[in-house]
Design a protein around this nucleic acid. Structure first.
Lengths: 195, 195
DNA sequence: AAGCTATCTGAACATATGTTCAGATAAAAC
DNA sequence: GTTTTATCTGAACATATGTTCAGATAGCTT
C-alpha cells in the first residue's frame, strides 16, 4: 500500500502541525515521538519527512507561526488613542488572543529550552517585539503623567506575566465569562500602573 | 569494581536529588536519562535504584520536597499585623524564596504534566495551601476596606503569576538589586489591590 | 582476623527513538 | 490510455531508553 485515498500535501501538512501542536502541548516535546504524531495523522512515521526536515524544525515552526500570528493580529487591531485606552486594548487583546489558542501559547513558552540556540534566538526576538509594544504604551503614559511605574521594563514584564496567568486556570463555561475576566484583569492592571 | 572509595548512602542520596534537580530544570524531565543523572553523580545507572524506586518517584520527590519547604518556610516567617503589612511580607517572601531556588521552582511548575494523576493531585493540593495563604490576606483586607479587588480568587492568581514572572528574567548582578526588585513589585501589587 | 552487609558495577533485557530509503500506488498530465 | 509525479508504506539503521540483577568489594561489626 502507498498513497491512500485522498491523500494530499495540502491536507497532510496542516494536519501534521495540528497533531504536533496538540501532542506537544499535552505531553511535552521530548515525550512525544514522531510515530505518535504520525499515528494521530493516520500515516506512517516516514511520511512526516515529506513535510518537515526533522523534529526540531517542526517545533520551531509551530512556535514561529504562533509568534508571527500574535504580532500580525496585534498590528491589525492596535488602535490609537490616549495611553489608558491603548493599555486597555492591549490587556483585552492579550487575554482574548491567548485564551483562543492555549496549546500554542503553552508550547511557545514551555518548550523554549528544547530549541537549538539559533532557533531560540529567533523566537526570543519575536517575543521582544511584542513586549516592546506594551512597553511603549507604559512609557508614553508615564511621560504624559497618567501612569506611574517605578520601572517601565519591569512593569511590562509584570503585566504580561499576570495576564499570562489567565491561561493556567481559565476554562470556558467556568465561573466567569470572558468579559468578566477581562474586566477583572483590566481593573488590576489599570490600578497597578496608575499615577 | 564495586563500592568505590568513600561511597555512602548519606552522600549519594542527596547528590542524586541535586543532579536530577539541575538536569531536569535545564533539559526537562523527559529529555534527561537515568544514565545522565548517574554520570553527574559519578556512578552507574543501576546504583540509582538503591535510592529511588523509579524515575517518576524521583521527580515527584523533588516537587514535593520543594512545596513542603515552601510551606514550612512561609509558616515560620508569616507574621501578624494589618492586611497591608501581611501582603507586603508575602510579596517579599515570595520573591526572595523563589529567586533562591530557581531550579526547583522551574520544575515544580513545568513538569506537572509528567506526574502521574495521583502525584499530580498531591502537588496541586500543596499549591492550593500556599495560594490560600495569600487569598486569606486579600480577603481580610477587603473585609477591612483597605483592599478592593473585583474577585479575591483571581486577584490571588494574578498576583502570584506576576511575582512568578520575576524568576524568568532576574539574574543576580544584573541591573537591579534584590531589594529594588522587591520594592518595584510591592509597589505594583499594593496599587493593584488598593481600595 | 573473619564475617557480614551496604553499596556499587557491568552486563543484559525488551522496547523505543529519529531518520532514511527503495519500492509501491493513486492521482495528474499528456 | 499511457506516462509521469507526488505521496505514502514498510522495513531497516544505529543508538538510546528505564529497569533488573548476579556478582564484586569496601568498610563495619564482632
Amino acid at each position: 500500500m502507498a498513497r491512500t485515498q485522498g491523500s494530499h500535501s495540502d491536507i497532510t501538512g496542516p494536519r501534521i502541525q495540528a497533531a504536533a501542536l496538540e501532542l506537544f502541548a499535552r505531553h511535552g516535546y521530548a515525550a512525544v515521538s514522531m510515530r505518535q504524531i504520525a499515528a494521530q495523522v493516520g500515516v506512517q512515521a516516514g511520511a512526516l519527512y515529506n513535510y518537515i526536515p526533522d523534529k526540531q524544525t517542526l517545533l520551531f515552526r509551530l512556535m514561529r507561526d504562533h509568534m508571527e500570528t500574535l504580532l500580525d493580529t496585534r498590528r491589525m487591531q492596535a488602535g490609537a488613542g490616549d495611553p489608558e485606552a491603548r493599555l486597555r486594548d492591549f490587556v483585552r487583546f492579550h487575554i482574548r488572543f491567548h485564551l483562543e489558542r492555549p496549546d500554542a501559547v503553552f508550547i511557545a513558552y514551555m518548550e523554549l529550552r528544547n530549541l537549538t540556540p539559533e532557533n531560540f534566538a529567533r523566537i526570543e526576538e519575536l517575543r521582544g517585539d511584542y513586549e516592546r509594544d506594551l512597553q511603549d504604551i507604559l512609557r508614553d503614559g508615564s511621560a504624559a503623567g497618567v501612569f506611574s511605574v517605578p520601572d517601565t521594563k519591569l512593569a511590562t514584564l509584570g503585566v504580561i506575566a499576570m495576564l499570562n496567568g489567565v491561561n493556567t486556570w481559565y476554562r470556558s463555561g467556568g465561573r466567569l465569562s470572558l468579559d468578566e475576566v477581562e474586566a477583572v484583569y483590566w481593573s488590576m492592571v489599570r490600578k497597578a500602573v496608575a499615577a
